[in-house]
Write a protein that binds this DNA or RNA. Structure first.
Length: 482
RNA sequence: GGUCCCAUCGUCUAGUGGCCUAGGACAUCACCCUCUCAAGGUGGAGGCACGGGUUCGAAUCCCGUUGGGACUGCCA
């Protein structure tokens, strides 16, 4: 007995949908938890309008980012067109398919307004021959039921008579998804079809096709088990929409989410590991995952929770790893891969890798994604800090104490025997105390003048790393601006 | 409209008849820590959609109601 053979079969749509990512992941889990399991990628590119090479590349690169390694493939459905055609012809010769030349308009007139959608079977017994406008329809059984044995939901029963004679081959001759998919699944000896719930209604049709193919070819391939994953929905509880929801996996990669955090979060959508811990190792995910434990109800893709988890993963990185993996966002010129639209605000010649290495630990615990780093450390590399005018006005322009603090800081910092965080801290504290101010108050104008903002990494460590010269210059510039 | 799926805190979930005065996580609130912001710590608020059964006992089983969703293409 060999292991499960599963496949992930996306159609190229321009980006990698997070729902697809989760389907791929759950398929991959099933393959990986069995030493003989096989995970296949099959790009379903039979629709000409969805067949751009760059889109297919996008699927490969997203899968690679997620670490979803393949055992077979990638395959292209379009490469099997000949097999699809012969399957269709075989089915037609065996009487499972019939030609139909009804147009949509004709169907409408026959059924009248407001009728139940679906084909009425008009051409079923007309014995039409192939013509320029004939499609091939499947002769759905008029009696009995088809039971989809869903590994997640249990048995789902469909009354055959309620399933209309669906089109299998277009009048153009192109074989449609239902048949192409089943032909390939049989060919690849797929044992588990794990996909989104939107496909549940397709399952009985595909089972009929699968069995028809078994009978017509004499090649008895065991029907795959089905497992329909709950949908991923937005706050409105609607299926994630490409137009209004942030569904592109690539955009999370570009924002600096860690693939391991992303995978961990995805695994929590519709499933959960044992115990109270949600942040768990990939090996645990693989080991514990069971299709039978997958939830039946839709899940909301919560970016806030994802972001929180990513922050935890980021903080768990060693400092060297953090520095290394943040390179695409802080020093893209030195990294093999660059996120799109995420240029740091400094130029290559302004950036100081050594300084960044000293600064990194200050930001590691303050960011949740890599893309948040540049704005937090820009003042180290830019000639002048990017001033937040509102803050500047608040603590310096409109506050006379701010100017006094700045002047006092210049005087004391100039004379400091040792330029280190502790000395800077003490000097600022003493200066504030002279004026009856707590450190939290006295540090504010200095922070604003030097870093441009009232929030940021610890001030005194920052000043130490920035150096006496630059610090004093920025304090004086601020004073002149008032 | 028809077919199908679903229903535990705002969100993701644990819970498979007694361990549940329902546990965890995100978000939220308060406090602590603190040079800002975070991080971290402590604590709080917050849920079994409703109605009937079955049972000694129901979040858990059954039926109904209500609510949500998917599908309903000569797309995948």
């Amino acid at each position: 007995m060999s292991g499960p053979r599963v496949r992930f079969a996306p159609s190229p749509t321009g980006y990698f949908h997070v729902g697809s990512a989760r389907s791929a992941l759950f398929n991959w889990f099933v393959a990986r938890q069995d030493p003989e399991g096989v995970f296949i990628l099959r790009v379903e590119d039979t629709d000409e309008s969805r067949n751009r090479e760059e889109w297919v590349e996008g699927i490969y690169s997203a899968m690679n980012w997620l670490g979803l390694t393949l055992d077979e493939g990638p395959f292209r459905q379009s490469d099997n067109a000949a097999a699809h055609d012969s399957a269709a012809q075989l089915l037609r010769r065996s009487g499972y398919l019939y030609y139909c030349d009804c147009t949509f308009a004709e169907l409408e007139t026959r059924k009248g307004p407001g009728a139940t959608p679906g084909y009425d079977g008009f051409c079923r017994e007309r014995g039409l021959e192939r013509g320029p406008t004939t499609a091939l329809r499947f002769r759905t059984p008029r009696e009995g039921v088809t039971i989809v044995r869903d590994l997640i939901r249990g048995d789902v029963e469909f009354v055959n008579n309620l399933i209309d004679d669906f089109v299998v081959v277009k009048s153009s001759g192109a074989v449609l998804y239902a048949l192409a998919n089943v032909t390939d699944d049989r060919h690849d000896r797929i044992t588990h079809v794990i996909r989104g719930e939107e496909h549940l209604a397709n399952a009985p049709k595909q089972m009929m096709l699968w069995e028809a193919l078994n009978a017509a070819t004499g090649d008895e391939v065991a029907l795959a088990f089905y497992a329909h994953l709950p949908l991923l929905v937005n706050e409105q509880r609607k299926k994630l929409s490409k137009r209004k929801d942030p569904v592109a996996t690539e955009s999370y990669r570009d924002q600096g989410y860690l693939p391991e955090a992303f995978v961990n979060y995805l695994a929590l959508l519709g499933w959960s590991p044992r115990g109270d811990e949600e942040i768990v190792a990939l090996s645990t995910l693989i080991e514990q995952f069971r299709l039978a434990d997958v939830s039946h109800s839709p899940a909301f893709f919560d970016v806030k929770k994802l972001t929180h988890m990513n922050g935890e993963y980021l903080r768990a990185l060693s400092l060297d790893e953090f520095i290394d993996r943040s390179a695409p966002w802080v020093a893209p010129w030195s990294s093999a891969w660059q996120p799109s639209d995420r240029e740091p605000p400094w130029r290559e010649d302004q950036f100081d890798q050594h300084l960044y290495g000293l600064v990194a630990h200050l930001v590691q615990e303050r960011v949740a994604t890599f893309a948040e780093i540049p704005s937090m450390v820009a003042f180290f590399f830019l000639d002048e800090p990017t001033l937040d005018e509102a803050s500047f006005a608040k603590v310096i322009v409109n506050d006379p104490l701010g100017r006094d603090l700045l002047r006092g800081a210049v005087q004391r910092f100039e004379r400091l025997a040792s330029w280190d965080a502790a000395s800077l801290h003490d000097a600022t504290l003493a200066l504030g105390e002279e004026m009856g101010l707590a450190l939290r108050k006295s540090q504010a104008p200095i922070r604003c003048a030097v870093t441009g903002s009232l929030v940021g990494p610890p001030l005194f460590e920052s000043l130490e790393l920035l150096g006496r010269e630059k610090t004093l210059r920025r304090l004086r510039v601020a004073l002149e601006r008032v």
